[in-house]
């Protein structure tokens, strides 16, 4: 009796929660197998570098990544000199100096990623009143995470016949509500990858999703590694404590 009720209850909980989470998000996202999802998963450095290139050459025109500094790019496999060179491509405002004036200087590794717009108002003014969101945490801030980012990038198509589009918006089959302000950002061969990978829309979408996941969860590899060690330790500890418990209790049973 109690097992029946409990299993019915659990089935109800699982059965009711799971489909509803998908129903509210519209079309189911294609599930990809990411190199970082498995318990021992790590980031694919080549994909991260390609993803950073997509961000730098495409997304960064409108989207900031205010939580990242150029020095963080060493995680992607760039050495110190390369990071310095990447940072030096940007001019940032510093100051005030001894004369009380703000001045421009090349960015250094300790600077945060330079934002495309000086402030939210400027971002709104340049984008029909809707400021493009910061991408630092995007891979954790949407249901589906990297799957969602990849799906959104490849989800642009013509609106089905009879679908009432609002002017200035674009149809995307994976976007909740299907009408998104951002026009399709990724074009085939819109970037040229240094490692010779063919820059299809799908490839770029995957790479940028990899990069954004790293940006949102930069300590993931350390976390996975430590988790394995801690769990192994706790397994052994549990066994030892269980044996000790049996031994101590042997005169009670």
């Amino acid at each position: 009796m109690r097992k029946t009720i409990l299993s019915l209850g659990l089935a109800a909980v699982i059965g009711l929660v799971a489909p509803a989470a998908q129903a509210s998000e519209g079309l189911a996202l294609p599930k990809l197998s990411w190199s970082f999802s498995a318990p021992f998963g790590t980031y694919d450095r080549a994909a991260l570098q390609r993803g950073f290139q997509v961000y730098k050459e495409v997304c960064a025109a409108c989207h900031s990544m205010s939580l990242l500094a150029y020095r963080d790019l060493q995680d992607l496999g760039y050495n110190e000199a390369e990071v310095k060179a990447i940072a030096a491509q940007y001019e940032v405002t510093d100051g005030p100096n001894d004369q009380g004036e703000m001045f421009q200087r090349p960015a250094v590794p300790s600077d945060r990623f330079k934002a495309p717009f000086p402030n939210v108002q400027a971002a709104k003014a340049a984008n029909n009143g809707a400021a493009p969101p910061d991408l630092s945490l995007m891979a954790k801030a949407r249901v589906g995470g990297p799957d969602y980012i990849h799906a959104l990038m490849i989800g642009y198509e013509n609106a089905p016949a009879g679908f009432a589009m609002q002017p200035g918006l674009n149809y995307n089959k994976y976007f909740p509500g299907n009408q998104i302000a951002m026009p399709a950002p990724i074009n085939p061969d819109g970037v040229t990858f240094a490692d010779g990978t063919k820059a299809t829309v799908d490839q770029q979408a995957k790479d940028v999703a990899n990069f954004l996941m790293w940006a949102a969860e930069p300590k993931l590899e350390q976390r996975h590694r430590m988790g394995a060690q801690v769990i192994l330790f706790l397994l052994l500890l549990s066994v030892v404590l269980y044996i000790a418990k049996r031994k101590i209790w042997s005169d009670v049973h």
């Binding site: 318990p39 976390r223 996975h224 430590m226 988790g227 394995a228 801690v230 769990i231 706790l234 397994l235 500890l237 549990s238 404590l241």
Partner: peptide, 14 residues
């Protein structure tokens, strides 16, 4: 405690 922390660690790390 060891068993509870084991379950906790699975969520915490993964």
């Amino acid at each position: 405690i060891a068993v509870f922390l084991l379950v906790f660690s699975i969520f915490l790390f993964y």
